[in-house]
Amino acid sequence: MLRIEGLSAEIDGKEILKGIDLEVPTGEVHAIMGPNGSGKSTLSYVLSGREGYEVTGGTATLNGVDILAMEPEERAAAGLFLAFQYPVELPGVGNATFLRTALNAVRKGRGESELDAMQFLKVARQRMKALSMPEDMLKRGVNVGFSGGEKKRNEILQMAMLEPSMAILDETDSGLDIDALKIVSDGVNAMRGPGFSALVITHYQRLLDYIVPDRVHVLMGGRIVKSGGPELAHELEAQGYGAIQEGLPSKHRFDGGEAAA
């Protein structure tokens, strides 16, 4: 389970996260919704260890282990996975090489044996089929020339291969048409079970029709301002983030101009 307590973080001296408390129990899928600039992506980067973000307070543990002190690769080995909002293109790095290197690095970190090329291909083909990905995507450079939908499917493929215990999906729905959205959601839903939790970060409720969350949290101004069941997402869709802001004590009101994306 992921437990975040009083997490504050800044970038270039500007405070973006202002004391986040959040708990995602094992086996549950939680959604974080919020307007642009509320700190959603910052939260995903701070949890996954991207450089440039300074944690100024609070803790984050995954299955009881403090992840904030770890290198990004150690967090991955510990079971954390970030599906990027904007997956990076890596010309010259073959997708198969990348996937196999990542898988074996994570397996090694977990004390499991590495897979050889044949074993790897078998697993990869299986997973790709489930995501309706053509096999030649293994031969291409990582995300090079991929459409928006292909890039997101590639993220889900990586998740399916690495089998994390905790996945953060950062705006995985952005840039997806309805068919791709369904495939990606099916990929996530297939992972759901007692050993898997996820934090689904999204601006819109649409994705949550396909990946139905156990809990929904609203992030505004660097804080979780409201939590509820799946119905909260629909409420937000109907009334907008403004309505939530109206109902908050003034000290929690979100000044959109203050926070970075």
Binding site: R50, L82, L90, F98, A102, A105, L162
Partner: peptide, 16 residues
């Protein structure tokens, strides 16, 4: 960062 977030150690990621 993308490579490291996938579990690949920094030196190996640089080499790739």
């Amino acid at each position: 960062f993308y490579l490291r977030a996938r579990g690949i150690p920094e030196s190996q990621a640089k080499a790739m």
